[in-house]
């Protein structure tokens, strides 16, 4: 049994479904409405991801209490998320606590790269799963020192489809796109780009060597999400890193400021209660 959520051990292993099947299924989804009178119709009207949303809300509450600014980094495989994060935590760990949760189907290689950069990191292996979910994040937090008043980076599984729908309790999603990919990715994976607050166009040092029309890509991205901030950088050369780091610093300061005002309110009401009890 898991102490945080009371889940069984089986459930903690994320979505592994071994189902031998044959592909000749002539399934009967053609619907007829002549159901027998003994049936009872029960209205549910519930979001399919309600359970995940519940866990995400719990994570978000914890992050708010401890003043943690949490980013969910999403991209396709090979966009350079891990290299970017390694550079990022190496600099920011001097300023405030940082930690990384990495999701991959297999291996702990990414976590090792982050640890080598000097930040605590834990790897979630999703096995056959294609995304991280809020429940899995809750479990990862049992193994990771929470970066109080700092920043937690969640590096999602490389996949531009599934992670779009799974709220982890983060402050925002950051989508990373590299110039070695197609410039039309924002259109092809519109749900993901629509869900992100910030887009990082990575590997710009390679622009002279690839056919990638930056302006067209940015236009596609804005078409899908006009409110999204876009920064261009190269984690390898360090070009554009300052703007990204400043963006993270601002988020961290805002989260810290919120934590302070929440604590001040608690303190004020505790003082008021004390004054009332003394009187």
């Amino acid at each position: 049994m898991c102490v945080t959520c009371g889940c069984g051990v089986d459930e903690a292993a994320m979505h592994s479904h071994d189902h031998p099947h044959f592909h000749d299924h002539d399934h009967s989804y053609d619907h007829s409405h002549d159901h027998a009178a003994e049936g009872r119709l029960v209205s549910i009207e519930r979001d399919i991801l309600a359970k995940n949303a519940g866990f995400a809300a719990g994570n978000r509450r914890l992050f708010a209490e401890r003043g943690v600014f949490v980013l969910n980094l999403v991209s396709s495989p090979g966009s350079g998320k891990t290299a970017l994060l390694a550079q990022t935590v190496q600099i920011l760990r001097e300023e405030f606590p940082v930690a990384v949760i990495g999701g991959d189907q297999q291996t702990a290689r990414d976590a090792e790269r982050i640890q080598a950069a000097g930040a605590p990191a834990v790897q979630i292996n999703t096995g056959k799963g294609c995304h991280l979910d809020a429940h899995g994040i809750g479990h990862a937090l049992e193994e990771l020192p929470l970066p109080e008043s700092g920043v937690l980076f969640i590096e999602n599984v490389g996949n531009l489809v599934c992670p779009a729908d799974f709220d982890l309790g983060e402050a925002c999603k950051v989508v990373v796109l590299s110039v070695t990919e197609g410039e039309d990715k924002p259109l092809k994976y519109a749900n993901m780009f629509a869900a992100a607050k910030l887009m990082l166009l990575n590997k710009i040092d390679l622009l002279p060597h690839v056919d990638f029309a930056v302006e067209r890509c940015l236009e596609y991205a804005r078409r899908v999400n006009p409110d999204m901030r876009i920064l261009q950088l190269s984690a390898r050369t360090g070009d554009g890193m300052t703007a990204w780091l400043d963006w993270v610093r601002q988020g961290q300061q805002a989260a810290l400021a919120q934590q302070v005002s929440r604590l001040e309110m608690e303190l004020t009401s505790a003082r008021a209660r004390l004054a009332a009890s003394v009187r």
Partner: peptide, 11 residues
Amino acid sequence: QEMRVKDILVE
């Protein structure tokens, strides 16, 4: 953008 379970028929 919805994904909802609307209702079920039970016995």
